[in-house]
Design a protein around this nucleic acid. Structure first.
Lengths: 348, 348
DNA sequence: ATCCTCCGTGTAATCGATTCCACAAGGAGG
DNA sequence: CCTCCTTGTGGAATCGATTACACGGAGGAT
C-alpha cells in the first residue's frame, strides 16, 4: 500500500538513507561499490523519490507556473506548448492556469501556484494588476511577463513588437484603396489592448488618415465581442472599408457578423487580424494577419524566468511580428497561378 | 526572505501551532476566542499555508494529472478546459501533460506526475499502453481514461460513442448520392483510431457499400498525415467521392491537399470530419462533422476520478455524439434562406 | 611510530505542516 | 465533596527526503 521510500532502498542496499540520497543525487563522496548496490536496489524495488518531500526540504519544486488569459485562444495554446517544451528541456515542469480573461480567476491561479511554492511565474496578465498578482511580484517570486505586461511593475517582459507589422498592414490596406479603417480594440486594461490601437492610429497618421472614435470598437478579446462591435460598425451611416481585429477570436466574431448580414469579405468589407493562427489559411476567405513569433516568445520567456530563478539576470526580450497577407483585404495577394482550370470531376 | 510559517502565526496569536492548524482547518474543538485571534494573525501577517508541507503530511495533493495526446488539437484544448473547470469546482488543481502523440513523452509525463504524488490521473492514451502507464494503473493510483482507452486495463472509461452519429453521417452521404467513401484512419494503436473505422465500415455495410483497403488511409491524427493520405486518395485510378477524416486536424490536412490540386469541396470531392470545432463553421466550405459532447466528457471524467479518489465508485460513462451537417458534403444542408440577395456595398 | 588528512559513511536535525496523546479546567451527577 | 466526562489546548511525533556534523579507518608525511 504505502509506496517504497528511501528507507526501504537503504535497507535493501545495506546502507544508510544518507548514502542512498547521495548516490541518487550524484554527490561525489560515495564509493563505487555503494553506488552500485543502491542503484541495483532502486531498480529492483522500482523506487521513485517523493518529489513532495524533496521539495519541502530543498525549498524548490522545479515547477513553473504559467497563467494565461484564455486557453481556447490558439495563440495562447501555442504559447503554452512552447513554454512547456522549453521548460522540460531545462528540467522544469509547468502548471498552467487559465484565467479566461477574468481577473478573479487569474488571482485564484496565482494564489494557488504560490501556495504550491512554484519556483517561478510566467504571466500574461488579464488586467492592469489584480491584488494577487501585485502581491506576487512584490513577494519576490521570480516572475516574467509574456505577451502582455503591467507597466510600473519591475518584472522582465518578453513580448513581440507589432508596430512595424501594423505599419506594413496599413500600407497594404492603403495600397488596396481602403480609406475608412476601423479597429476592434482589446480591453484598455491590457497593454496589448492599448498598444495595438496606438500602433494602428500612428500608422494611419502616416497616411493622413484619421481614426475617429466611431471606428474604435471596444472588444474583450473574445469571439462574441468581435461580433457585437462589427455589427455596430455595419450599422454606422458610413461603415468602414476595413475592420482590423486586435486578436484572432474577435476576427472570427467579425467574420460571423459580416456573414450573418449576407455580406462578403473582402468585397463588401475587408478584414485583418492580429495573431496569425493556422485556421486562418482555411477560412473563407483566408485572413490577412499579423503573426507573432509565438514559439520563440514562449521559449525566450522560459529562459528569462529560469535565469532569474537560478540567480542569473534574465532580461526583457522584444521580438518583431510580421505581416502575412492573404485574401481577406482584397485581391492584391493573388500569388497563386491565375486560375488553375480546376479539373471538375464527375459526381454520380 | 523566508516566508511566514505557521509558527509565526502561532506566536502572533499567542497559541500553539496545533491550535492554528485546527482553527484553519475548521476542526471543531477550538474556542471561538482562539479562532478569532488566529484568523486575525493570519490576516495581518498575510499567512498562506505551505501546500508542499501539507501534502507531505496528509499524503494528498488535491491535484489531478491530465495527460492528453495533443494540446494543439482544439478538441483536447476544450477537454482540458472543462476538466480544469470541474476540478476547480471540486477543489482540485490540474496539471496538464502534453504527449504530442508520442508514447515516450506520455510516459515522461505520467512518471513526473506520479513523482509529484498527484491524487489521480486522467489519461487519453496515445498508444496501446506504454510501460509507465501500465505501471501507474497497476500501482493503484486512481485513474480514469477519457476519450481513448486501453483494452484489458481495469480503469473506468469516459468517452463518447460515435456509432450512431457515423450511421447518420453515412445516411447523409448516401442520400447525397455519394457511393465511394474513404476514411483517413487514426493510429491503430488507439481505440478511437480503430473504432471509427469499424463504425464507418459497419454503417457502409448497411447500405451494401464496401470499404476497400485502398479507401482506408493510415493517418496519425496530425495535419500532415491528413494531407498525405488525401493525396494518395486523389492519385487513385478511381478516387473516392468523399473523404471522412477521423479527427479534425487530419480534415484540415485533407482540405489543404484538395485545394493544392485546384479541386473544390464539395463539388470535386466531399469532406467530413470526426470532432467538431468552432473553426469548421468558418472554413471554406464549412465542414460537416461529428460533434462530441466535449465539455460533458471532461466534467464526467473529473467526477468519476474524484469519486475514485474519495473512495466512492466512479463508473464508466458513455455519451452519444451527434452529426452536424454543413456544406462540405454537398448542398442538402442549404438551410439558410435560398439567397439573401446580398447588399453589395460600393467599395472605393 | 605518530600525527594529520582525506574519504566514505552514519546519525540526527531539518523543512512546515497535521494529528495523536496527555493533560488541565470546568461542569454534571452521584 | 469526589468522580467522570467534555472541551480546549499544547507538546511532540510524523510524513520522506536532504544535509550538517561526527567519526572511524586508510594512507602519507614527518
Amino acid at each position: 500500500m504505502a509506496s517504497i521510500g528511501i528507507k526501504d532502498v537503504a535497507a535493501a542496499a545495506g546502507v544508510s538513507v544518507a548514502t542512498v540520497s547521495r548516490a541518487l543525487n550524484g554527490h561525489p563522496s560515495v564509493s563505487a561499490a555503494a553506488r552500485e548496490r543502491v542503484l541495483a536496489a532502486v531498480e529492483t524495488l522500482g523506487y521513485r523519490p517523493n518529489a513532495v518531500a524533496r521539495s519541502l526540504r530543498t525549498d524548490q519544486t522545479r515547477t513553473l507556473g504559467l497563467v494565461i488569459s484564455d486557453v481556447m485562444n490558439p495563440y495562447f495554446t501555442e504559447l503554452a506548448r512552447s513554454v512547456e517544451e522549453e521548460a522540460r528541456a531545462l528540467g522544469y515542469s509547468v502548471i498552467i492556469g487559465n484565467a479566461d480573461e477574468r481577473p478573479d480567476l487569474q488571482d485564484h491561479h496565482v494564489t494557488t501556484l504560490l501556495d504550491r511554492r512554484i519556483d517561478g511565474l510566467l504571466v500574461s496578465p488579464t488586467d492592469g494588476g489584480s491584488p494577487g498578482m501585485l502581491a506576487a511580484a512584490r513577494a519576490g517570486t521570480p516572475m516574467v511577463f509574456v505577451d502582455r505586461w503591467i507597466p510600473g511593475v519591475d518584472v522582465p517582459v518578453v513580448r513581440s513588437d507589432g508596430r512595424a507589422a501594423v505599419r506594413d498592414l496599413v500600407a497594404h490596406l492603403h495600397g488596396l484603396g481602403h480609406r475608412r479603417l476601423a479597429i476592434i480594440a482589446g480591453p484598455a486594461a491590457t497593454t496589448t489592448g492599448r498598444e495595438r490601437v496606438d500602433a494602428f492610429r500612428e500608422a494611419l497618421g502616416a497616411y493622413g488618415l484619421p481614426l475617429p472614435d466611431a471606428y474604435i470598437g471596444q472588444g474583450d478579446f473574445q469571439v462574441e465581442s468581435g461580433r457585437r462591435v462589427t455589427e455596430g460598425f455595419l450599422d454606422l451611416p458610413e461603415p468602414p472599408d476595413v475592420v482590423f481585429a486586435a486578436d484572432n477570436l474577435m476576427a472570427l466574431g467579425a467574420l460571423d457578423a459580416v456573414r450573418a448580414r449576407g455580406l462578403r469579405v473582402p468585397e463588401d468589407i475587408a478584414l485583418a487580424a492580429f495573431d496569425d493562427i493556422r485556421w486562418f489559411v482555411h477560412t473563407d476567405p483566408p485572413v490577412t494577419a499579423i503573426a507573432q513569433p509565438t514559439g520563440d516568445l514562449g521559449r525566450a520567456a522560459v529562459r528569462a524566468l529560469v535565469d532569474r530563478i537560478e540567480g542569473r539576470t534574465g532580461e526583457s526580450v522584444t521580438l518583431p511580428a510580421r505581416l502575412v497577407v492573404r485574401r481577406s483585404c482584397g485581391e492584391a495577394a493573388l500569388r497563386q497561378p491565375p486560375s488553375p482550370s480546376p479539373v471538375r470531376r464527375s459526381t454520380p
